[in-house]
Amino acid sequence: MSLAPTLLPVRQQVRGSRLVWICASLLAFIAIASVAGPFLVDNDYRSTDFDNIFLPPTITGQHFFGTDDLGRDLFVRTLLGVRITLFVAVIASFVSLFIGVIYGAIAGYLGGKVDALMMRLVDAMYALPFIFFVILLMVVFERSLLLIFIAIGAINWLDMARIVRGQTLSLKQRSFVDAAKLIGVSSFGIVWRHITPNLLGLVIVYMTLTIPQAILVESFLSFLGLGVQEPQTSLGALVYGGTNHVQSATWLIVIPATVLAVILVCFNFLGDGLRELADPKSKT
């Protein structure tokens, strides 16, 4: 008889899930706004207007968030940045999900020496300063959105692979898998009907944590001028643009930086909250 598992007090759980709910709604709002917003104002993201450069934000005027050094509307550009940032992050997360789940599930299901070798590789890659390789890649090949997807996916799959592998390994050792074997369920059937459904919750939870990481990498590259190219933009690129005018036009950095921070914080809270709800024991 062991100590009763100390569940989170109910009150805290409600608060936790309320936070999850707020973050999810906020993210949904930002995402919808980024798509619908451009239809509500008649500025576009690329038209320059040299008579109206460095206009500060205003509620009544034509440019809610003001204009940049070329007189382009920051509101529309921020929405575009959100769109591209989210798009890149979600696609890249799917890339990492795809690689990570397959790699992790194979390592976990096969186990033994194959697993040991595959995980050694992951461990070795885990500690590499990956961004340097990504930048090397960017230098060598033409910069493109595709390359960014691959680069981000290539970094982020490691986490997913580790988690999926660990879960697969522990599921495989549970006797319901043995029971399925004895019934005569095929290997495919075991993976499909018995392992995968039990991985799903975890994968979705970790996906919400992978997205902010992907956003970070994308905006990092864009900030360095190695990501999305003008006149297209992303939040990272906008922040970079803002750094050049920190002293004169603070809104150019403060607005995109705030939007980026809000998105990242929301995703992290969402992921953390979901993880705690899914598995009260893992609170890292």
Partner: peptide, 15 residues
């Protein structure tokens, strides 16, 4: 040939 295992909860697929 069938088998019954030690830990009843672990022997049933939670999903």
């Amino acid at each position: 040939l069938q088998m019954v295992f030690q830990d009843p909860l672990a022997s049933l697929n939670p999903a």
